[in-house]
C-alpha cells in the first residue's frame, strides 16, 4: 500500500476514536442537561426546605436532603481516620517488601471491587444482626434497639465501601510530598511521628481532602448498600438518634421512579430530586477532579 493511502486509512480510524471519545462526553452532557433543564423547573426554596406532603406529589424533600447529609457526615467521620492511617502505614511505616503491607494492598483492591449490594448484605448480617443483636443483649434492651436498620449502621456500611477511595487518594497525596522534607525534618531531630504530624500530613492535606470529597460524593450517591440497612421511603420526623431510620435522596429517587402509580405526573418532583442529588455528588466530584488534576500537574513538574 502506498504511504498516502495508509495515512488516509489511519486518519479515518483516528477520527473514529475521536468520535468514541466525544460520544461519551456527549452522553454525559445529555444526562446533565436533561436533569438540569427538567429539574430546574420544579426546584424552589420551598421544595428544598419543606417535608413532602400529599403522597410525595407536593411539598419538598428536606428530610431526604437532611438524611443524606447526616448519613455522609457520619460516614466521613468513620472512614477518614481509618483510611488515612492505613495509607500512612502503607506509605510511611511499612518496611519495604513487607508481606503484611502487600496483603493490605490486595485486600484494598478487592474491597474496591466488591459489588455495592454485597455491602448491603454485609451491613445487614454483620452490623445489624451480629453487632446490633449482641449490643441489645449486652445492654439489656427488651425490644430491638440497635438490632434494626438505622443511620448508624448504614453510615458504617458506607464507610467500609468508601475505605478504598480514601486509602488510594491519601497514598497518592503522600507520594507527592518530597522525600527531602521528611529527611530534613528527621535530620533536625524530629521523631517519625512528629515528622508525620507536622510535615508529611500538612503537605499531603490537599490530596487527603480530595479523597474525602471523592468518598463523600461516592457515599452520597450509593443506594444499594442502604436499601436494607436504614433508608426509609417516608418518615415524618428527621433522624435525631443514631438508631433512627432516615430518608435519602437516592433511595427517594429509586422508589419514586419505580413505584409511583403515575410516573409522568411525578416527574416534576422526581427530576428536581435527581437534580439535587446530582448537584451534591457531581459538584463534589468536579471539585475533587479539578484539585487532583492541578496537584498531578504540580507533582509532574516538580520531578
Amino acid at each position: 500500500m502506498k504511504y498516502t493511502t495508509r495515512r488516509a486509512v489511519g486518519l479515518g480510524l483516528t477520527g473514529l476514536t475521536a468520535l468514541a471519545a466525544f460520544f461519551i462526553v456527549g452522553m454525559l452532557a445529555l444526562i446533565l442537561l436533561d436533569v438540569a433543564r427538567n429539574g430546574a423547573r420544579h426546584l424552589s426554596w420551598a421544595f428544598l426546605t419543606q417535608p413532602p406532603s400529599d403522597g410525595m406529589m407536593a411539598g419538598g424533600i428536606f428530610p431526604a436532603i437532611f438524611g443524606t447529609a447526616a448519613l455522609t457526615l457520619l460516614m466521613t467521620l468513620a472512614v477518614m481516620p481509618v483510611g488515612v492511617l492505613t495509607a500512612v502505614y502503607l506509605h510511611e511505616y511499612a518496611p519495604p517488601e513487607s508481606r503484611f503491607a502487600r496483603w493490605v494492598r490486595v485486600a484494598v483492591v478487592n474491597l474496591a471491587g466488591v459489588p455495592s449490594i454485597v455491602f448491603g448484605l454485609f451491613g445487614l448480617g454483620f452490623f445489624i444482626l451480629f453487632v446490633g443483636g449482641n449490643l441489645d443483649r449486652l445492654l439489656g434492651y427488651e425490644e430491638m434497639h440497635w438490632a434494626q436498620p438505622s443511620i448508624l449502621w448504614a453510615s458504617l456500611t458506607l464507610a467500609v465501601l468508601t475505605l478504598p477511595v480514601v486509602i488510594v487518594s491519601t497514598e497518592e497525596a503522600l507520594r507527592a510530598v518530597p522525600l527531602e522534607q521528611r529527611t530534613a525534618s528527621l535530620a533536625l531531630g524530629a521523631t517519625q511521628s512528629q515528622t508525620l504530624a507536622r510535615v508529611v500530613l500538612p503537605g499531603a492535606l490537599p490530596g487527603i481532602l480530595t479523597g474525602a470529597v471523592l468518598a463523600i460524593s461516592r457515599g452520597a450517591g450509593e443506594v444499594a448498600p442502604i436499601l436494607f440497612t436504614g433508608a426509609a421511603y417516608f418518615l415524618p420526623d428527621l433522624p435525631t438518634q443514631l438508631n433512627s431510620q432516615f430518608m435519602h435522596l437516592g433511595y427517594h429517587t429509586y422508589v419514586m421512579a419505580t413505584q409511583s402509580p403515575n410516573v409522568t405526573e411525578a416527574s416534576g418532583p422526581l427530576y428536581a430530586t435527581v437534580l439535587v442529588l446530582l448537584a451534591l455528588t457531581f459538584a463534589l466530584n468536579l471539585v475533587a477532579v479539578i484539585i487532583r488534576t492541578r496537584t498531578r500537574r504540580k507533582a509532574a513538574s516538580a520531578h
Binding site: 471519545a21 461519551i24 462526553v25 452522553m27 454525559l28 444526562i31 436533561d34 436533569v35 455495592s116 460524593s217 452520597a220 450517591g221 450509593e222 443506594v223 444499594a224 437516592g250 433511595y251 429517587t253 429509586y254 421512579a257 419505580t258 410516573v263 416527574s267 422526581l270 427530576y271 435527581v274 442529588l277 446530582l278 455528588t281 457531581f282 463534589l284 466530584n285 468536579l286 477532579v289 479539578i290 487532583r292 488534576t293
Partner: peptide, 20 residues
C-alpha cells in the same frame, strides 16, 4: 477528567435516566 466525571454520576441517576 471529563470522561472520568461520568463515573461520578450515581448509578441510581443512570437508572433514572434510562427509565425516563
Amino acid at each position: 477528567p471529563v470522561i472520568e466525571l461520568l463515573a461520578g454520576i450515581p448509578s441510581v441517576v443512570l437508572g433514572f435516566f434510562a427509565l425516563m
